[in-house]
Design a protein around this nucleic acid. Sequence first.
DNA 1: TCGTCACCGTGACTTCGTCACAGACGACAG
DNA 2: CTGTCGTCTGTGACGAAGTCACGGTGACGA
Lengths: 225, 225
Amino acid sequence: MNPRGDTWMALFPPLAGLPEAERGMLATRAAAAALPAGTTVFEPQQACGAFLFVTRGSVRVYQLDQDGNEIVLYRLGPGSICILTTMALLAADRYSAYAVTETEVEAVALPGPTFDDLMGRSPRFRGFVFLAHAERMADLMRVIQNVTFESIESRLAARLLALAADRGTLSITHQQLAAEIGSAREVVSRHLKAFERRGWVSLARNRIEVRNAASLRGAAGDADA
Amino acid sequence: MNPRGDTWMALFPPLAGLPEAERGMLATRAAAAALPAGTTVFEPQQACGAFLFVTRGSVRVYQLDQDGNEIVLYRLGPGSICILTTMALLAADRYSAYAVTETEVEAVALPGPTFDDLMGRSPRFRGFVFLAHAERMADLMRVIQNVTFESIESRLAARLLALAADRGTLSITHQQLAAEIGSAREVVSRHLKAFERRGWVSLARNRIEVRNAASLRGAAGDADA
DNA sequence: TCGTCACCGTGACTTCGTCACAGACGACAG
DNA sequence: CTGTCGTCTGTGACGAAGTCACGGTGACGA
């Protein structure tokens, strides 16, 4: 049923301490699923009825307003669970958030009843779920901190570094970058141009190369934490 | 032990469906507490070790940056639970949020072990807790939506209406109002002056009177949702 | 009555968001 | 190879919002 056995559990350190019986439940009741890049995983007024463990790839969760403005709230990678579907599952509430796969994503789905069973049976599993909720809550609070108190320049620098990771170069448009930090394309373009003039990055269509990460880190300051 | 018996549970509709045994646990294990106005309930690096039901009064939860800038995240009133302490209790995570009582507050505290016991025992109680988490998460997403996409004027109008409720007048400084919406005092002062010129409010030291709620509602637009 | 202190008003300036529009690049068909 | 087309990027102009500096003013106690 699960093509990779229960090895996916290794991606979730808090699950390591679960008793064998509960690991067995996870292994036998969970079903793996693969989603191509660009799949809409979640949007308002429509919920997926399972508890999802992400085992590979990346899911971007973002907010939209009615004019199409966008801001990225957080990303889910291997080892994360989708808290929006959990909320929708258990609290029947509705959010104004969207989630889309950025790459091909593999996830393990736990049926609602099994999830609830585990929540009742296992203090450790409860701790795991609460921890995940706490992390997402912290993500949202970080976003609020950034948009409210940090300058565009520092947020942009921080986000460039985060997205480039150690690859040093990234394929992204200015429009997408603006959506990352909840700003406007023109504003991002101007700041990138300024970064380029200072020799911190090189710009080309759809491509940004980080040339001086140290300076960017300095400009990032406290942004993103 | 609990001076008001278990009548406080009536404030939490989702608890109504709990079996008698679980209501009994809540009634006998929970302890009431009263906090004077201005008490710091929560701040980073320091957690209170219990699960809190607010039964009277109002708690303001807000974020600070290092320069003293402030933004209100949400309020807890009668019928709300304090999710930050829950998180701290179960996930041992730390937040950059502060919580302070705005009025005298009465709360019912459930010891950690009893909370965990109930979480394991009662699917309904789990649903209740998840619903509370979902509501706070929705609050944070609303804050993000507002600070990112809404104008100061609409946010200010919306917040004036929310704070004035139906009393029509409120005692608050421009500085506090700025903290409500995460802006600066001067900006708020200027917009209030504009509102006054339009006859929507009257201003005095420490006092704002709403004179034309309909116009304010119009200006609020989609802010606060 | 006189400081003192918090609160409020205002001008000047910077940063950011919005609008309009002009180039520039890449993919692709003919 | 070349023209076309859609997307991406650059830029000026302007309004909205944040920052800084400073002055006025009302409440309140010494």
